[in-house]
């Protein structure tokens, strides 16, 4: 059997990680393809870490943080939003499929949404892998 796709999720401790916990609390099922790494804030996300994930063989990367305005550190996600915009364009420029690198905002109360996000990312990455 072919190896299933493998996605790494960087979730900020205060909103998205808590949102993913809520998904569990609500017993909403999502695919096992995603493994979550807890980070303090999306502002901590050095693009080199995302590059490393791809370089080490991850099929997809998801980064999720607090909605703009809700950052626990007030501004961290705004810095991330800028870095993300640049990184995303550069990755696409180098021909890395846009489906493989995704970012979103999930709040601590959006348990249902987190499951939906994971399903979408898994579907996207799977469709990329199929055509690869």
């Amino acid at each position: 059997m072919e190896k299933d796709i493998n996605i790494i999720g960087f979730l900020c401790n205060w909103c998205s990680y808590a949102g993913a916990d809520l998904t569990g609390l609500n017993r909403i099922i999502y695919p096992t393809n995603i493994k979550i790494v807890r980070i303090p804030c999306t502002g901590r996300m050095d693009p080199v870490l995302i590059m490393e994930a791809f370089h080490n063989g991850a099929d997809g990367v998801l980064v999720s943080g607090c909605h703009p305005g809700d950052c626990h550190y007030t501004e961290g996600n705004y810095y991330w939003r800028r870095r993300h915009a640049v990184l995303k364009r550069l990755l696409e420029f180098l021909g890395i499929d846009e489906r493989r690198f995704q970012a979103t905002w999930v709040s601590a109360s959006e348990g249902k949404r987190f499951a939906e996000v994971v399903k979408k990312v898994v579907d996207d990455v799977r469709s990329w892998k199929k055509n690869e």
Partner: peptide
């Protein structure tokens, strides 16, 4: 650009 930001920018970038 990486040491500052605007609150009302890049609104469509990440949803």
């Amino acid at each position: 650009p990486f040491s500052t930001f605007e609150k009302d920018e890049l609104l469509e970038e990440i949803r």
